[in-house]
Nucleic acid binder design. Sequence first.
DNA 1: GGGGTTAAGATTTTT
DNA 2: TCTTAACCCC
Length: 827
Amino acid sequence: MADPNGYHDDIGDTFVDGFDGDGFPGDRPSRMASVEPAPQPAGGGIAARAMAARQSKAPDYLEGLNPEQRQAVETLNGPVLVLAGAGTGKTRVLTTRIAHILATGSAGPAEILAVTFTNKAAREMKERIARFIGGNVEGMAWLGTFHSICVKILRRHAELVGLKSGFSILDTDDQLRLLKQIIQAEGLDDKRWTPKAFAAMLDGWKNRALTPNEVPEGEARAFANGWGRKLYEEYQDRLSILNACDFGDLLLHVITLFKTNPDILADYQRRFRYMLVDEYQDTNIAQYLWLRLLAQGNPNVCCVGDDDQSIYGWRGAEVDNILRFEHDFRGAVVIRLERNYRSTSHILAAASHLISHNQGRLGKTLFTDFDDPENELVSVASCWDSEEEARSIGDEIEALQANGHALNDIAILVRASFQMRSFEDRFVTLGLNYRVIGGPRFYERMEIRDAMAYFRCVVQPADDLAFERIVNTPKRGLGEATLKLVHELARADRIPLMQAANQLCQTEEIRPKARNALKEVLANFERWRGQVDSLSHTELAEIILDESGYTEMWRLDRSAEAPGRLDNLKELIRSMEDFESMAGFLEHVSLVMDRDSVEGNDAVSIMTLHSAKGLEFDTVFLPGWEEGLFPHQRALDESGRAGLEEERRLAYVGVTRAKKRAKIWFASNRRIHGQWQSSIPSRFLDELPEEHVEIVEQSSNYGGYGGGGYGRSGGGGSRFDNRDPFQNTYSTPGWQRAQKARAAQDAVFERGDFRSSRSKKQGPLTIEGELVAKSVSEAPSEYSMGERVFHIKFGYGAIIAIEGNKLTIDFEKAGQKKVLDSFVERH
DNA sequence: GGGGTTAAGATTTTT
DNA sequence: TCTTAACCCC
């Protein structure tokens, strides 16, 4: 299977099968001395404790594992792929495997490379291993995220990739500002060619580990009429002057380092005797190459993942990595974990049936023995609009609460964050405790970034972006004109801004007022730098914020947010206490943008489906299952069938978060960008298995599958009390039409012949666009052209087009809209 | 340099 | 519809 990028083959295909019996790297080359911390030979530390524990009693950590899990834990040598379905004990396998490696003395803690995607996952794994081992895990130096491990490696060999060890890591904000400068410096219009668009393109390249000269000509040309490659080069050049790198570079530089310094690579290959990768389905090409370079010396790679839960394709994740594991790692053992310990059989059946509509899966069949006495069917309910959705779900939650269910066991999972708002509004009115997970993060707040910029300037004098950020914050009369002079000198001499500013201050080039202000700032930084060693970093931080006038600035600010910002600054200083030095803190912040979410009170969780991966709740509400929202129109437009399949995996992730109750909702109308849109039930609803789903018809339902017709008055009472399980919903005309439409559509899919069925009238631009259009029935409508109708939200209008049961209506007030015929009445 | 006005864009998100 | 960022004028 030829890969368009050819990436699977560009470092050769030779792999040693079986175990590479290299002993402890006792006599390492001298260079290795710099790659501390040194592994602890079995005999001290964790391994010793683990072994001692093992001798005193049987390895009880293996107890209670099912046969597959046990195989995944015990197959230590050679490549292993663990396909771990949702809720099958993936984390348990990973941690037990590490415990097993240690307990059998197969390797010391510092000889295990264990990679995760998120800090949270790394943290959890550390905690769980600690519990096994009965101590802390200080020796597990190489358990962390891809990025943090790369930083660790890069800090030791920075000079080999053109950096200095103290390099800083840019966040997205810095990156965009820098890109903007570069685009403007080339004389390009940054409106036409936005920094954001270029950042996205860069990201794509770096995710595939492409350096500027490796970017395919066509892609390089795509940006700004052929400036793409030049801009990429320019950007990398600027980064190295700034002694900085972006997130993508962390991986990329390590790959370059390994490729150009075989001796260093060999050292790491020897060091990492066992490698484990979590969430393998989320790896991008750069991560794959990185892993593969290391695995060339040593085939003991264990990757754990679930192709059905790959939901980060838009961020560069390559499902192909997991699909091709057996090919890429010769002699791989593939173990499937299919016994689910989380959900009821109905939930599992619904999720499995849904995901079976995807092609290109490795295929797993989840099963469970778990019999919940109540074993509720997955429910599907409809409502008029997002407000009613929020109201009904709020009512259901209150009912659950009244029955003794904890709010902590309940979650609402949405496709897009704008959906959260109606729930928040409603829950505030109800006085129902909730917490939003994800969302704007602490370290992204303006005042925190400003404060951090001050610290960065002290610790990393070449950090231009930080300097620029705060040079005139608070206002010091250092305007555009002054900065321009500094910039020009810095550019011309290829020196950092602060150095350029220093030089300029010795001359007469800047007007005295600005010069004095600039001198003062520079003197401040000089002084603070001198205090780094004499004061504790928290003290210094307070002094910096104080003497710079930054705290003062907010104290004088009379706006409503100012007090909160001051609190945040205090919180920032407090969180610095956990770190040894300011540099350590800065690195932590750039790599760990999340703060531990405070669990605290009993509250309903509201979050996106993406951030729900890996979590579980007794009851899960899944609102907004409508075409265009879920699957999201943009996913369909931009990524076609692959996009649809990823959306379906997202649906699968959503449903499998539920332990006991999964409740799906869709609204007939939704306000998107302030505009009311009528919506059509998601195709995913049709992909749920009839026998495991119940359709809940609400008393005030206007939507549904056309079965209940529509009512009047969107008014207020509880929908929960009068709900009335709709008998035999699957035989309603609406459902049958939907099924029929689906069958027709699947046939089209199967033939791969999309064009022939494209509707004549307003041919959708994409294959999937057509599928969306076709998710409505083909059955002839009872309405005719020109008829005057009434729609509860849009008012009166005339029918100007009919496609099946989908009408295009020219409303007197709302303009042209497409609606299902069941939502209007003759008038 | 600040404030008011206008225009554009509005999935998903970690590191 | 709403938010944010850019722009223009004082």
